[in-house]
Design a protein around this nucleic acid. Structure first.
Length: 597
DNA sequence: GCCGTTTTCGGCCCGACTGTTTTCAGTCG
């Protein structure tokens, strides 16, 4: 019997276990357990997405605050944490080899096929199952199996090969990377005269921090020609599938691009359908069902009417209106309360890029001899760029001078000189107001990496953590709060320290951080750097709920990077932030009043 | 197994595509 290391199971491991239960139910009897399967998958999704550590919630007896965890699953998880195993889970998994589960990470493998193959060939070792199966396929033993054939055998070999090359179901691209990839495909599509419009949708349109597949919707009166053109995309690796209304290709690097088509008169329903999220759409359709309507990418069917009449929608606004709802911004279509508010016409006015009046986290090339990397452009070039972006103000915030390389006297000299430079620039640039900042390390002991006497040289400083990430939650929270406690420390930079696809970031006690930041009128940064996007959207949402203010910054080291602001705004929108929640939407006078307060 | 301004019982989204099938099962989004 398998025992789990219950002393410390991460949310991800717990979610994985619940997905294994869903898969096992599917294998046992997918019709009989249809709703259990959905329930376990939903619970797994919820656990993957929550900000709370599930084991912490268990200790506080608050597991049921996670939507999707009800009486049964709560009980099972409690048993898991107490005993390290769950009798009911063992029952569900009975007769199913552990070797089934690694196969589920490979595209085209679902529970049924994985089970059939492991059972037929008596595969028991979950560490070697993929290699074992590959060998069997190469020997041509799969094609003779009932329900399999030559093609599926080849498909299995290809899927395993691609999986080994790193094309797993779970690997996701950072948002800006996905943007560039998509732009190339969309530009190509627009050159076809069969294609009237092409728009990226899915998680990309919802501006999620990471994107799995790229989804593109096409408006066309000639789907056959449009799809033929699509699958001939010059940078394609291969065609995954192609039908009369949709097709999928793999492009360079093995990323999948899905294309769906509709004629212009139904394009609105298609946009809505293909933007998702899955949870948002399911909720919407359940709601519609209760009103006697059935929703799909084709439009709205009235169930009561005998004739198969589908009402079509050329715009999303009209589609939502037909359901009695306001248009829901794509960024918040995650089924976390937006549907209810759209019905009551009470959706928040989310912050927009044009609301941003300044960027405070920019590294110039001023020779400050910093602890970390210097920027590449001059302060003057940055000011010029800020003008181009129609900002009112800009903040210079190079890293603090390295304390290991300088004596305090040298640091004082460097800062004094920099201050004079900023003063002079302020006089010569009337269109852009300059805010004199610095990004200062919070050292492991909680002290700032600059003598506190020097802080008076600045309007304020951004404090952030760049080292010793392995500290525990308690110590890290203490460290962060200590760093923020100086009156000049106004902004907590990239607060979680995460790097997407690289590291998770350290743990903090968010309730304590929120309380402190709010009480002392500080702000949390939403850092727009592509693989940071930090704060994560879910923590922005909590900040908004708690009334904690934020600023959105690019952390630019080069002027072109100041354009990354849109990704930071996207994160803020995904966290339901309005203009009022974001301090750098304030005009200069009010912003400077805050930062000097 | 979860959930609730139609319900604490009786519901639970909707469709595309492929391969192995002679009408459907499996996977995916």
């Amino acid at each position: 019997m398998l025992c789990y290391h219950f002393s410390r199971m991460s949310n991800h491991e717990i979610a994985k276990l619940l997905r294994e239960i869903a898969a096992s139910y599917t294998i046992k009897n997918d019709k009989k357990f249809r709703f259990q399967i959905i329930a376990y998958q939903k619970a797994a999704d919820a656990i993957d997405n929550t900000n709370f550590e599930i084991q912490d919630l268990y200790k506080e007896n608050k597991l049921n605050i996670v939507p999707g965890i009800g009486i049964s699953i709560k009980g099972h998880l409690e048993e898991l944490f107490q005993k390290g195993k769950v009798a009911h889970f063992d029952w569900v998994k009975e007769g199913i080899s552990e070797a089934v589960f690694p196969l589920l990470d490979i595209p085209t493998f679902g529970p049924k096929r994985a089970y059939k193959l492991t059972k037929e060939f008596n595969l028991k070792n979950s560490d070697t199952v993929i290699e074992d199966l590959e060998k069997i396929a190469k020997e041509g033993k799969i094609s003779s199996l009932k329900g399999f054939g030559e093609k599926s055998e080849k498909e299995i070999l290809r899927a395993i090969k691609e999986y080994k090359e790193g094309k797993k179901k779970t690997i996701r691209m950072p948002l800006p990377y996905a943007f560039e990839l998509t732009e190339k495909v969309v530009d190509y599509l627009k050159k076809s005269n069969a294609i009237l419009e092409a728009r990226p949708l899915g998680s990309l349109r919802r501006m999620m921090a990471t994107v799995g597949d790229v989804d593109i919707a096409v408006s066309t009166n000639n789907p056959k020609q449009a799809l033929e053109y699509f699958v001939n995309y010059p940078f394609k690796e291969r065609v995954v599938e192609k039908g009369p209304t949709s097709a999928s290709i793999l492009v360079s690097g093995g990323k999948q691009v899905d294309l769906m088509t509709q004629p212009p008169e139904s394009f609105g329903s298609l946009l809505q359908h293909f933007t998702g999220s899955k949870g948002h759409n399911i909720h919407l359709r359940e709601l519609a069902l209760k009103k006697g309507m059935s929703l799909s990418e084709y439009g709205i069917k009235k169930i009561s009417k005998k004739e198969e009449n589908i009402e079509k929608f050329n715009s999303e606004e009209k589609f939502y209106k037909a359901l009695g709802m306001d248009f829901v911004p794509p960024e918040i279509r995650e089924d976390t309360g937006e549907i209810e508010l759209a019905l009551e016409h009470k959706l928040p006015n989310l912050v927009e890029l044009k609301d941003i009046k300044g960027d405070l986290h920019i590294h110039s090339n001023y020779p400050i001899e910093p602890s970390h990397d210097l920027g590449r452009n001059s302060m003057q070039e940055i000011i010029k760029k800020a003008e181009d972006l129609s900002y009112e103000y800009v903040g210079f915030s190079e890293h603090n001078p390295s304390i290991s390389k300088h004596k305090e006297k040298d640091i004082e000299k460097i800062i004094t000189k920099r201050n004079k430079k900023i003063e002079q620039l302020s006089k010569s640039n009337k269109n852009i107001r300059i805010i004199n900042l610095l990004e200062v390390d919070i050292m492991p002991n909680g002290k700032l990496a600059i003598n506190e006497n020097f802080l008076s040289f600045f309007d304020a400083v951004i404090v952030s953590i760049h080292s010793s990430f392995a500290m525990n939650k308690r110590e890290m929270t203490k460290r962060a709060l200590s760093g923020l406690s100086h009156p000049k420390a106004k902004i907590f930079g990239h607060p979680t320290g995460r790097k997407i696809n690289e590291r998770n970031g350290y743990e903090l006690d968010w309730d304590e951080i929120f309380e402190f930041v709010k009480k002392h009128k500080k702000a949390l940064e939403i850092n727009a750097w592509p693989n940071r996007l930090d704060l994560p959207d879910s923590i922005v949402r909590e900040s908004v709920k708690k009334g904690v203010k934020m600023v959105i910054n690019t952390d630019s080291h080069e002027v072109s990077q100041m354009d990354l602001m849109k990704y930071g705004v996207a994160v803020a929108r995904r966290g339901w932030a309005t203009k009022d929640d974001i301090l750098n939407t304030l005009p200069y006078n009010r912003f400077i009043e805050w930062i000097k307060s």
